[in-house]
Structure formats: structure tokens, C-alpha cells
Amino acid sequence: MSVTVRIPGPLRKISNGADKVEVEGSDLAALVAALEEQFPGMKERLVDENGELRYFVNLYLNNEDIRFLDGLKTPLSPGDEVSIVPAVAGG
């Protein structure tokens, strides 16, 4: 079951320039692991050593902040869209 992930500018060096990739995963933690497999180095940019989402990274599942969902345990469905967005913007 494939999920679309939108990659922000600062991570495109790791994604070989791709701004959108398709990966598999039953929940967001699995999705992060799948991203790491496909693009080594991605995981440490997204989560800290305890496996928590990094403070300056926002993840959105279908435009909803995952901090309002079940965090990285939030389950995924086929066709979902996940956006990785740097947190330091706005105001």
C-alpha cells in the first residue's frame, strides 16, 4: 500500500532531487523506516535518537498535523499523502 510523501527543499539532496516519492508503510513510523531504506540519511533528519519526531520538523497526514493525530503511531491507508515541512516558518 503506497503512500505519497512530499519532500521539502532542504531534504531533496537526500531524495536525489525528488520532490515527491512513493513509499510503503502501515503507519508513520514504518514510513520513516521505508524512507530511510530508500534514501539513507533521511531518518536522522526526521526523528531524534529516541525515535521522536524532531522539534523543527512537522509531518502532515492529508494536511493534518500528526501531533493532532497519533503522532508517528498514526496508521496509514493506501493513497494517503504525507508532507514533510520545516517547522520554522510564519509569524
Partner: peptide, 26 residues
């Protein structure tokens, strides 16, 4: 909400060659 607007603009700022004052030239 504003946070929705901000999230959208953060994604657009990667695509459009504009000075998003509170994003890419923040």
C-alpha cells in the same frame, strides 16, 4: 486556520520563485 495557510505556503515556497517574506527570507 493560519497554521493551514502557513503549511501550504511552506510547500509553495519550495516551488515558486517568490520571496515569501516569513518563509524563505524569514
Amino acid at each position: 486556520t493560519y497554521d493551514d495557510v502557513n503549511r501550504l505556503c511552506s510547500e509553495l515556497a519550495d516551488t515558486y520563485p517568490w520571496a515569501f517574506v516569513n518563509i524563505n527570507i524569514r
